[in-house]
Design a protein around this nucleic acid. Structure first.
Length: 766
DNA sequence: CAGTGAGCGAGCTTCCGCTTGACTT
């Protein structure tokens, strides 16, 4: 018999707590929820007051048995799941599934994993709070109703296997609407005038960079202004110095960690979570799924010590940050190093990098403000009312900046902080260069995974444990895609005034280049439009916030959960039925115009295998012609010309060795086909619309040669091949690594078999 | 690996939030 059994949600937490509590306590984990609505069917008996049908999922049976066994061996049972509505529900499910006595099972909570906090919690056990449990049940059931009633509508009206939900559908909506803003955006340009001034005509080294207060829409006006500058006298008219301070950002929550790890380390949201999980399991950081910016007293004290010993007393400033996020439940601490005195850790590169980021952010949050001095200098011109101004910044005391400063989402175009040379009012200045550069306005940027998480968090949609999975879901469903886009060339004009001469030139720059951004796909746009038309309430940006207010009321005991669901469902279910009334499917169909030669209608729509262009209609005599859209094209924006162009491929380009050569664009990009073999065209070099027979032959020869080099040794069923990462052995479609330092060209068949054998054994053991 | 665009239609797909491994490459 064990005196005390403590049940927590996470096994890593169990391990830590067991150390604090000593011999009389055994600590085990439930691994999160142990029970959920039935997987099959709805799992809700709507006509019986929304009675949920709970079941222990297959993968949780083992855990549940383990919990039962331990419970039977223990005198006192303490349930220490998190203090939020999910945690409360977990406690309630445990009591039910293990058949414990609700009056005699002790519910305890703590927000930080410190000895003090746990001992304190043990002193104040309470009972399970049924109001909180009911608010979780309302949340769970509402999500099931929304997801499992709307998704089947999509299967009927749009395509099978699609999905909709309170969280994912809003995430898709954000991306679709942003894309439409970008599509509708028309760029403007204007000329921005910048100058480099010299303090004396003799000294070329001390310069003052400044910008004109006025921009010019037309090139002639910019040019006229430069003409004035050519003759002008410049003088310093004003100097203003403003002191200011800058404060550190709060310690990391899941969302801010994901954002910073993306901006500073280039990690995807999923990658950040997986590395953080490793650090957590190794005891190096606190829990990584949190919405709280709170630090434990212990962490505050340890950080303070670390700062004072490393940087001195004046760099320390203990702060506690208030969590501002909508709907935050604050069951945990912020994400911080377990031991703030350790600036670095052992581990792989990514673990080290992420740890250091967390360490810096935490430490910086406990450091003094930086003291800044901003200087603004006004420069007058004697022959024009336009002013120039120079701004500079001097850091008087670096404070937290010594360790860390937060990155911004968009790289700003402004030049980095710049130190103004010593100047005096009335001082004359001499221009070195004055440039008028054409600058284009840009639309709102597309979302990255991380900036989407930020936006969702602002709207109070989703939870720390679901940000990463939500982003995967909307990509897996094909609603959105994360990719790079090359951008387009654009011409910009540049006027340069130097040594009394104005020089005009045209430059090309790349506009709209994107890296790892989220783009909507046609099916995402179609589903979104369908949901906005039929379920505007659910995909409203405020829907979650509205129902969250009601869940809070339930948790407070002011609202009955079944009543809340009843009210929601009666109107929601009506919209489900209305949405099924319209017989037509939603295909995103759009008529582009008529074929210039045959006059047949040309249209686009979502077909069975993806978006297609169609020429003509199905009649008794004739079948329509079809062509797939390219990956970069959207149903919504494709033009008649672009659509017709798709029918020019596949294209015969000639004959080679008695067989036809054809150029086309396939699933994996542009190709030529010859003798039923495919050869990829070179990116940025070849174009399937214009590629010639000669170039095609070149590509075929090139590929055949490299294939020849690919086979190093051939023993029939076993081959030694040259791959992307060097030589390897292949047998029955399985690949094996060759030990380092082996000469692949001298391997015998026996040696190969030996390598295969040992590597298979290794795999079995690991 | 790279095509297809209708055809009978059974049976399946799907949500959000808690937690980790078990998988494969």
């Amino acid at each position: 018999m064990v005196e005390n059994l403590v049940i927590v949600e996470s096994p890593a937490k169990a391990k830590t707590i067991e150390k604090f509590l000593g011999k009389d306590f055994r600590v085990i984990s439930s691994f999160g929820h142990i029970r959920d609505l039935a997987k099959k069917n709805l799992g809700i008996q709507i006509d019986k007051g929304f009675a949920p049908v709970y079941e222990v999922p297959k993968e949780k049976v083992k855990v549940v048995n383990e919990l039962k066994k331990n419970a039977a061996e223990s005198k006192n049972i303490w349930i220490a799941s998190d203090e939020d509505r999910e945690g409360e529900a977990i406690a309630w499910h445990i009591i039910n599934v293990l058949d414990l006595d609700p009056g005699n099972t002790k519910r305890i909570v703590f927000h930080e994993i410190t000895k003090e906090a746990i001992e304190e919690a043990i002193k104040k056990p309470r009972l399970v709070d049924m109001n909180l449990v009911n608010s979780q049940q309302a949340r769970r059931i509402l999500d099931r109703l929304v997801g499992f009633e709307i998704s089947p509508v999509l299967w009927k009206k749009v395509q099978p296997s699609l999905s909709a939900g309170r969280v994912q559908s809003v995430a898709v909506r954000l991306i679709v609407e942003r894309e439409r803003e970008i599509i509708a955006f028309r760029s403007d340009s204007s000329f921005r005038v910048t100058a480099i001034f010299l303090l004396s005509q003799k000294d070329n080294d001390t310069i003052l960079k400044a910008e004109a207060s006025q921009k010019f829409t037309r090139e002639e006006d910019a040019c006229k202004f430069l003409e004035l500058c050519k003759e002008a006298e410049f003088k310093i008219a004003s100097i203003t110095v403003k002191p200011g301070t800058r404060s550190p950002a709060p310690p990391f929550t899941t969302s801010t960690l994901q954002q910073e790890a993306y901006r500073k380390l280039g990690f995807s949201v999923a990658q950040t979570m997986s590395v953080a999980q490793k650090l957590y399991e190794a005891g190096k950081i606190t829990y990584m799924r949190t919405d709280s910016t709170n630090l434990s007293k212990l962490a505050l004290a340890k950080s303070r010590d670390a700062i004072i010993s490393e940087y001195g007393e004046k760099y320390s400033k203990t702060r506690q940050f208030k969590t501002k996020t909508k709907g935050a439940q604050e069951a945990h601490e912020a994400i911080r190093p377990s031991y703030p005195d350790k600036a670095t850790i052992a581990g792989n590169q990514n673990e080290k990098k992420l740890y250091e980021l967390i360490w810096k952010r935490t430490i910086a949050s406990q450091m003094a403000d930086a003291i800044i001095e901003k200087t603004n200098i006004g420069i007058e011109i004697n022959n024009s009312p336009v002013l120039f101004s120079a701004t500079g910044e001097v850091v008087k005391f670096d404070g937290f900046l010594r360790v860390y400063s937060e990155s911004a989402d968009q790289e700003s175009n402004d030049e980095e902080r710049y130190v103004i040379p010593p100047v005096k009012k009335g001082m004359p200045l001499y221009y070195n260069t004055v440039n008028a550069t054409e600058r284009f306005t840009s639309p709102f940027p597309r979302y990255t995974e991380a900036s989407l998480v930020k936006k969702l968090e602002e709207l109070g949609i989703g939870r720390p444990s679901t940000y990463a999975p939500t982003i995967s879901t909307i990509q897996n469903r094909g609603y959105v895609v994360k990719e790079d886009r090359p951008g387009e060339k654009r011409k910009t004009r540049l006027l340069e005034l130097k040594s009394g001469k104005i020089n005009a030139s045209t430059k090309t720059e790349i506009a709209g280049k994107e890296k790892s951004k989220l783009f909507p796909k046609d099916i995402g746009m179609i589903v979104n439009d369908f949901l906005v038309e039929n379920f505007s309430e659910i995909v409203d940006y405020n829907f979650t916030a509205d129902v969250e207010m009601q869940f809070d009321e339930i948790a407070e005991g002011n609202l009955k959960w079944t009543g809340m669901l009843d009210k929601f469902y009666s109107s929601f279910h009506k919209t489900v039925e209305t949405s099924l009334e319209n017989k037509n499917k939603k295909t995103g169909a759009r008529v582009l115009g008529n074929h210039p030669e045959t006059g047949e209608p040309v249209s686009v729509k979502m077909g069975r295998f993806g978006p297609v262009v169609q020429i003509g209609n199905q009649t008794e005599e004739s079948k329509p012609k079809f062509a797939s859209l390219l990956k970069s094209q959207l149903l919504e924006t494709i033009t008649l010309d672009e659509a017709l162009n798709l029918f020019r491929l596949p294209r015969k380009i000639g004959e080679y060795e008695g067989a036809e050569m054809v150029a086309g664009i396939g699933k994996f990009g542009p190709y030529i086909r010859h003798n039923n073999k495919f050869y990829s065209l070179k990116k940025g070099v070849d174009d399937p619309y214009v590629i010639t027979l000669e170039r095609g032959i070149e590509l075929i020869v090139e590929k055949t040669n490299s294939e020849k080099q690919k086979v190093i040794q051939d023993f029939g069923d076993i081959q030694v091949l040259n791959g992307r990462y060097g030589p390897y052995i292949t047998k029955e479609k399985l690949n094996y690594r060759i030990p380092k330092g082996t000469d692949a060209s001298k391997l015998t068949k026996e040696e190969c078999l030996k390598i295969i054998d040992t590597s298979e054994k290794k795999q079995k053991n690991s």
